[in-house]
Amino acid sequence: MKIPDPLRVDFHLLDRQVVDPDGYLIGKVDDVEVSVGEDGVPVVTAIHIGQHALGNRIGGVIGRWLAATARRLHETGDPRPLRVPFELVHKVDSAVVLSVRHELMDPSALEIWLRDNVIGRIPGARDAG
């Protein structure tokens, strides 16, 4: 793990792009989960990715709206942001690189819905440009 030391949550982590080992863009660090260890030192335990987390952080009308659309679109009935345990973070650089491939994580509900109902139905959607 290549992580800046000391790691500043606001400066190095929050709102940074999250990518998988192949550079697939997973999302932004929309929120972080912090717990206080036995020695009293706070540790980052996970990062959260998803518009619910972002909406809650922005607050106000727009924030609530963002969070609400994210919840509405969830088909699996589990309206929570994607939670990535911090052990899976491989390095924090100009992006946060994870050590696992994106296929192993829950994909975004919005992405799946648009892929299955809109973009995936257009001819040529499987060809790279």
Partner: peptide
């Protein structure tokens, strides 16, 4: 929002 974007990937992988 940090979504997958661009023309290097197949459109169905950047649906948003």
């Amino acid at each position: 929002f940090g979504w997958q974007w661009g023309k290097l990937v197949r459109p169905r992988e950047a649906a948003r």
